[in-house]
């Protein structure tokens, strides 16, 4: 856990102390965004084995959130479902990976982005990334930073492919990214 924190701090900021707090603020927002996305996306009923099956949020790669995402989803319910957070690793937890409902692909896993997308692109899994071109490459939502504000891009085709229904209210705020060239190019 310390290592994850450290890597995050290394990756994001130059000043360890200040960047750590800045990073934690950024990821607190992003944790909120993830929760908001869960609210505005409809999963097909097949995605859940039971009516009260929890919505599983998987975080692949180095966890940038710390405990903030746990705090955000703690005690929250969406359509009678709890939210649980799972931390996953590439190649080890592949089975768990496919059982997530929301999959956040940390920037530490940017090399495996294409593989992950290919693996889950037909499954009703909302993929969220934070690497540039993530959506264009077949990811559904990509979180970006603009003027130090967190924004997001949506690939509607990918969402349809995954059989996910994204609320128009979400789409109204999103930057719509077409499916295609960028993704293939990057692959």
């Amino acid at each position: 856990m310390v290592a994850v924190l450290l890597s995050l701090s290394v990756a994001v900021g130059a000043n360890a102390q200040s960047s750590a707090s800045a990073a934690s603020a950024e990821y607190l927002i992003k944790a909120g965004f993830i929760y908001n996305f869960a609210q505005l996306v409809q999963w097909p009923s097949a995605a859940f084995s039971q009516a009260d099956s929890p919505i599983v949020i998987g975080i692949l790669g180095t966890d940038p959130f710390g405990t903030s995402i746990d705090r955000v989803v703690e005690n929250k319910k969406l359509d009678g479902r709890n939210l649980i957070v799972k931390r996953l690793r590439w190649s080890k937890d592949l089975k768990d990976l496919t059982e997530c409902n929301i999959l956040f692909i940390s920037s530490s896993e940017k090399e495996h982005v294409a593989d992950v997308i290919n693996m889950v692109k037909w499954l009703p899994i909302l993929t969220i990334g934070e690497t540039p071109g993530f959506a264009a490459r077949g990811g559904i939502i990509n979180l970006t930073l603009e003027d130090n504000k967190v924004r997001f891009e949506v690939n509607i085709g990918a969402a349809k492919q995954a059989n996910l229904n994204i609320s128009s209210r979400l789409l109204a705020l999103a930057k719509i990214v077409p499916q295609g060239a960028d993704g293939r190019k990057s692959e």
């Binding site: 965004f33 908001n36 609210q39 505005l40 967190v150 997001f152 209210r169 979400l170 109204a172 705020l173």
Partner: peptide, 14 residues
């Protein structure tokens, strides 16, 4: 209602 999402995502512009 329309501005709910914008508020949730802190989207001032929207």
């Amino acid at each position: 209602f329309n501005s709910g999402a914008a508020m949730a995502f802190k989207d001032e512009t929207a």
